[in-house]
Computed example of a mutant assay.
Amino acid sequence: MPKGKLMVDAATQRMNMVESQVLTSDVTDQRVVRAMRELPRERFVPGAMAELAYMDEAIALTPPGPDRRWLLPARTEGKLLQLADVGAEDHVLNIGCGTGYAAAILARLARSVIALENNEELVAGARRNLAELAVTNASVVSGRLSAGWPSKAPYDVILLQGSISITPDDILDQLKDGGRMVAIVNDNGIGKATIWRRLGRSMDARVAFDAAAPELPGFAKAPAFVL
């Protein structure tokens, strides 16, 4: 950056992100919009990436590797949160919470949040971020993402922070009657944001909109056996 040129401050970048990425993507839930306007997204990315926190694409949270993790683009995050329709008394499971950005938003919408992560560095970072922001109704737990967190079930809402290629029945079993799960389903490279709703013993699934996201560890299809 040339000397004398002032960097746009984070608050301005955050406002621009909401105006140009979130609101233009038909996110009309004012609770979600307000939270995204107020939460410092730059806290939730690696320090070297802070200047890129408000760009319109996924941001890497971990180094390259088979289980690399990402912060979802704001427009995708906002649409998923709106689709989940979180109520003030809801108990929420956030799977693949990364550094805690979605968990911090959910904590403003819900009564309680369990934020599940399997990467210990991300677990520590998420706990630190939530503590520094004085979030008291969200707990970060460490465990296998594809197992969910049954000890605190049932949940009103389950939100997965990435795409999946299989339907996670063990996680759907952790929904209470009337509860819903939101995830991006990757079908042969095409992503569809999908909402499942438990209706007694049955489960209704509905595709809501097109979306793309990196895949979460543990949710890939097993390789097909070829003769």
Rank of each mutant, 00 (worst) to 15 (best):
A153Q: 02
S165P: 08
V135N: 05
P154M: 10
A138I: 05
A107F: 05
S142C: 11
L122M: 10
Y155G: 04
L122Q: 15
L145T: 03
L159V: 03
L145N: 00
V157G: 02
G143R: 06
R144F: 12
L133V: 05
N186V: 14
L159D: 01
A110F: 10
M181V: 02
R144Y: 04
P154N: 06
V123K: 12
G191S: 07
R108T: 09
V182G: 02
D156S: 02
S165F: 08
G191F: 10
Q174D: 02
L145M: 02
S163M: 12
R108N: 12
V113A: 01
T167R: 13
G179N: 07
I190R: 13
G125Q: 14
I114N: 11
N186T: 11
L122R: 14
L175G: 03
R111M: 07
S151H: 14
A107E: 03
D170M: 06
S146V: 06
P168D: 05
N188R: 13
N137G: 10
Q161E: 04
V140G: 04
L159K: 01
K176L: 11
E120R: 10
V140H: 10
I164Q: 09
D187H: 15
S151P: 03
L133P: 00
V185Y: 10
S142A: 09
N186D: 08
S142K: 15
V113W: 07
Q161G: 04
E117L: 11
W149T: 01
D173M: 09
Y155D: 05
L172I: 13
E117Q: 10
S146C: 04
L145G: 02
L145W: 05
N119T: 13
I114R: 11
N118A: 12
R180I: 01
Q174P: 04
T136S: 04
K192W: 14
R127L: 15
A147P: 00
G162E: 03
G162W: 14
A131K: 15
A138F: 14
